[in-house]
Amino acid sequence: MATDWPTSRLEVLNEEPLVVKNPKTWFHIHSYGGWGKFFKGLREKKLLATRCTNPKCEEKRLWLPPRTECPDCWHDMEWVEAPQQGTIYTFSTVKYPGELFKLPAGTHLISVELPGVCTKPMSWLKEGEPQFGMKIKAVFNTERPTNTILDLAWVPA
């Protein structure tokens, strides 16, 4: 039996030193696991957070991004709808995003403060110019969901 040389090749970009182009074309199969409920909730315009079910746990507030186990007591959490109105805690306009960003350069990133929530989730402002303490409300990408955190955004309330 004789085996022929491969037909695909690496493109040579430079001879001295020898530099070749090494393509990467595959994808990752990623499971959101126990957090999938949050992303599916976005399709139904629900902002799903979690709360510790341990009556002895001191952290009574909601977690958003959700966690399925409480980091303070390792107890199970329950799913609860978080408020959809909050304020801008901080913001930045990203002029030079990384390669995989699905939104245009110039998008306003924000961190959101929500009543009764112990975290300040990072998100983006879909309309308007961000200001500290600005009142905002959640909007959801239900038409063509990306199935990422980008399906949640905020607009002035």
């Binding site: 990203v94 995003p97 990133l109 990072m122 990306t146 990422t148 980008l150």
Partner: peptide, 8 residues
């Protein structure tokens, strides 16, 4: 929950 927001 974060990388998608800018990849930066």
């Amino acid at each position: 929950f974060e990388s998608e927001l800018g990849w930066m």
